[in-house]
Design a protein around this nucleic acid. Structure first.
Length: 578
RNA sequence: GCGCUGGUAGCUCAGAUGGAUAGAGUACCUGGCUACGAACCAGGGGGUCGGGGGUUCGAUUCCUCCCCAGCGCGCCA
């Protein structure tokens, strides 16, 4: 039940009925309470097209609406206001009825998509040569939330973790591994901190020419399928993936081993990508490299930006791999929609991949390919984020810090709880806060990393939503079961406000599915919690008379259900007490 | 040089197809715990929406020109 869409459809039809064709009603939730629950803004635009007085047109539309039995079930009254807005007031008893129905429905009365798609979603994609750092947070968390939302709406979601496991840097790492093995060093110990391991290998690479030469040769050996190197490589990859899995588990991210679709997987397809591009007439040689030149990527001075798919030494590039992946996702996975949760800096690259992939016939023009970009992480001074040592902040360090700070807070709030419970609560709160801090922003541009805002537990944060949930659970511990036969009555303004907000859950979910913007859902849940908190202050439950108490318990119950479901779609847990 | 993304309150950020008095959080100031949990609530101050033009009944939103920031533009991924 998406009220906004329903109103929009009916009012757009009403506009057509009075002669305004192809004029959208542009229904939105009202900007201010005195403007009703929803407002239609499209009348002025339609009137302009028809060269009519907008208020006159609005009058006609309202007359049309008043004759519509379907919409009359939910609308109390219409008001024509200002230059030609139609303000819509919903019926109290209809709202109450909808709350009751939503409470009794399976998934908060959210309708499954009528056109389910096979969505391939490419997210997280760490480089296995190094440990995951804070920059991987966005892709991992936003991708996971979008996946959950799409699944919730009945789409088939195929997660693809396009991990980097095949670049030239693995020659360096494997060579270093080989050295350590000969020295009988404790390899597992060394690999437990991948960041240090990488740096140590890098130093060898930079300082020792013989080592560097060996490293370059080993890449070739690896990619040619040398058994010894494959074994060594496999050991490294496994270790690194274990690190990732550990992070995913802490983050409550659904990515599993079977979702890993590494770059190496496409190794055998790369040659055929080149021949297929050639067959499609897209390939041309330039300075020894195989390139695709397209008019789409022409600069103002007519110079065309090439996409290089094969180096002059015969080696392939990530453009080649991405094209192979694109073809695989269409042919093998049946993708009808592709989402790429990738850094904004790769926007040109991905645009090229999409256009070339479609021109080459790797997938149909109709397949929607969407780059859901996000910006670079910056430090407080607005320059790219680095620690003092010059490296990036490890993700695991951020998560541990979150748990630590949350534990201190839980301990100060609830000193009597046993330590195990406090730990558990702290983990849920701490990780929730970190995830929410990132999910609640819609920044395609760069963003500032800040420990304190990332680890804040007050205001618009996950703990605020979790707190609302915990409060409701506390009420139910005291109130016992709801009388399911009780009637919901919306008497107080706070009750009505809460009920209306509760019924807008699917509006938020639909936007996230369409635009890939979990911050809409965050914002919705924050407002819902705010409405609940106000209701909680203004409308006592336990002290009210029995009928009112039951009615309010139902509102509280649906709030809890909505918070739990909504937070689960974001990959954030709730708890009974905190 | 060309291109992409952005510039909204002291700070961190929302503002979905142009709409009525631009919103949160935080920080600051006033109040509210003999409690359905103060990780909260009620209220206050604080903004030339980077700047100039333009389109429109109406522009934070669309067009255009500047300024600033980050990033991207042939053999890394």
């Amino acid at each position: 039940m998406n009220i906004r869409t329903q109103l929009d459809t009916i009012i757009t039809q009403a506009l057509a009925n009075v002669g305004a064709n192809e004029a959208p009603a542009v229904v939105k939730t009202s900007a201010r309470p005195e403007f009703g629950d929803y407002q239609a803004n499209g009348i002025m635009g339609a009137a302009k097209k028809l060269k009519m007085n907008p208020r006159e047109l609005a009058t006609k539309v309202v007359a049309e609406l008043e004759n519509n039995s379907e919409i009359s079930l939910l609308v109390e009254k219409y008001e024509i206001a200002g230059p030609g807005f139609i303000n819509i007031h919903l019926k109290n008893n209809w709202l109450a009825d909808q709350v009751e129905q939503t409470l009794n429905s399976d998934n908060l009365a959210v309708k499954k998509s009528s056109t389910p798609e096979t969505v391939v979603i490419d997210y997280s994609a760490p480089n296995l040569a190094k440990e995951m750092h804070v920059g991987h947070l966005r892709s991992t968390i936003i991708g996971d939330a979008i996946s959950r939302v799409l699944e919730f709406l009945g789409h088939k979601v195929i997660r693809q973790n396009h991990v980097g496991d095949w670049g030239t840097q693995f020659g360096m790492l494997l060579t270093y591994m080989g050295e350590l093995k000969k020295e009988n060093a404790e390899l597992e110990m060394q690999l437990s901190d991948l960041e240090k391991f990488y740096q140590a290998a890098k130093i060898r690479f930079d300082e020792d020419e013989a080592f560097a030469t060996q490293a370059r040769e080993n890449v070739v050996k690896l990619q040619a399928g040398d058994a010894e190197f494959l074994k060594l490589w496999q050991q490294f990859i496994d270790t690194s993936l274990n690190h990732c899995d550990e992070i995913y588990q802490i983050l409550n991210v659904k990515l599993k081993r079977e979702d890993v679709a590494p770059e190496s997987q496409y190794n055998d397809d790369l040659a055929s990508v080149i021949t297929d591009l050639d067959k499609a007439g897209l390939l041309s040689e330039d300075q020894g490299a195989q390139c695709v030149f397209l008019d789409e990527f022409k600069g103002k001075d007519d110079s065309i930006i090439p996409m290089i798919v094969q180096k002059s030494d015969g080696g392939y590039l990530y453009a080649t791999t991405d094209l192979a992946a694109l073809r695989y996702r269409h042919n093998q996975l049946g993708m009808t929609r592709g989402l790429y949760l990738v850094d904004a800096r790769q926007s040109l690259h991905l645009k090229q991949v999409y256009v070339v992939g479609k021109k080459a016939g790797f997938l149909p023009e109709t397949t929607s390919l969407e780059h859901m970009a996000f910006g670079t992480m910056m430090g407080k001074d607005g320059t790219p984020f680095k620690t003092r040592t010059g490296g990036t902040v490890k993700l695991i360090d951020l998560l541990n810090e979150a748990k630590l700070r949350a534990f201190d807070l839980v301990t100060s709030k609830n000193p009597d709880l046993d330590e195990a419970s406090r730990r558990e609560i702290a983990n849920t709160v701490g990780i929730g806060a970190v995830k929410y801090a990132d999910l609640s922003k819609n920044r395609t541009s760069d963003y500032i990393f800040n420990w304190d805002t990332m680890l804040s537990f007050e205001g618009n944060t996950a703990p605020y939503l979790q707190y609302a949930y915990a409060r409701i659970q506390s009420i139910f511990r005291k109130a016992g079961e709801i009388n399911s036969g009780a009637e919901i009555v919306l008497q107080e303004p706070a009750e009505r406000l809460l009920a209306t907000k509760l019924l807008q859950f699917s509006e938020a979910v639909d936007v996230v599915a369409k635009d890939g913007t979990p911050n809409f859902l965050c914002n919705y849940l924050f407002e819902l919690s705010g409405n609940f908190m106000s209701f909680y202050e203004a409308c006592p439950i336990m002290k009210a008379d029995e009928a009112t108490k039951q009615s309010r318990l139902k509102l509280a119950q649906l709030t809890a259900n909505t918070l739990k479901t909504g937070l689960d779609l974001l990959g954030i847990d709730v708890m009974e007490r905190m």
